[in-house]
Design a protein around this nucleic acid. Structure first.
Length: 213
DNA sequence: TAGTGTCT
DNA sequence: AATC
């Protein structure tokens, strides 16, 4: 039996029930994903949202889908239109939907059809503090998170804020999935370190797919 | 409601 | 790490 030089075992990190990091799961689609991010940013520009407490989020965001996650002084919620333009959020590109569905299926979540895709853009020095994704009505569907560009440290906590966190490195093409008993786990991203990625320069992008209802 | 941030 |  000759060794197969053209395939390799991809890293898979178990995060608990219904949750895992799928190493390099999006590598083949990464170019297409970045191309779509570029296109979407012309329709719904990246912006820094405000927290209900009046702080500016360091991470820049935009949405695709029939609903988009929005934060301002009034709170966190999903909106059909971009508050900045009054237009509908652009549709989720088919290449996004296909990837999200495949990643969900890998963890056993069948027929995952997200209605929201939040796109986060991290520059060096930016971060996303530990939080839960709990603004969705539907907590049965999983969360799918795709990493592109610069590597980051993923904080993976528990179901309560005080629970200890574990740190995992997320690199270009990794996909994290959490659903079922892990759906409301606290998570976050540590301050992004300086660096240069051949495809994104000094940036990291993250796609988060949610089924809000 | 709000802590997806900031301070100690 | 702990706090609000």
């Amino acid at each position: 039996m000759l060794p197969d030089l053209f395939s390799f075992e991809r890293r898979r990190v178990d995060l608990g029930p219904g949750a895992a990091i799928l190493g390099g799961f999006a590598l083949d689609q990464a170019d297409a994903l970045l191309e779509q991010i570029e296109r979407l940013s012309l329709l719904a520009p990246f912006r820094h949202m405000q927290t209900p407490g009046g702080r500016r989020m360091s991470v820049a965001m935009l949405n695709a889908g029939s609903l988009g996650w929005v934060s301002d002084l009034s709170g966190y919620r999903y909106e059909r239109t971009d508050p900045q333009t009054g237009w509908n959020w652009p549709p989720i590109p088919p290449v996004f939907l296909e990837l999200a569905s495949q990643a969900a299926q890998t963890l056993g979540f069948e027929a995952f059809v997200p209605d929201a895709c939040l796109i986060n853009r991290y520059a060096p020095g930016t971060r996303l503090s530990l939080h839960q994704d709990r603004d969705e009505q539907d907590h049965h569907a999983p969360i799918i998170s795709v990493s592109l560009g610069l590597p980051a440290t993923f904080l993976w906590g528990g179901l309560e804020r005080r629970d200890r966190t574990t740190r995992y490195r997320l690199t270009h093409g990794d996909v994290a999935v959490w659903g079922g008993p892990s759906r409301l786990m606290f998570h976050g991203i540590s301050e992004l370190k300086d660096g240069v990625h051949p495809l994104t320069g000094a940036l990291r992008y993250n796609l988060t797919f949610r089924k809000t209802r």
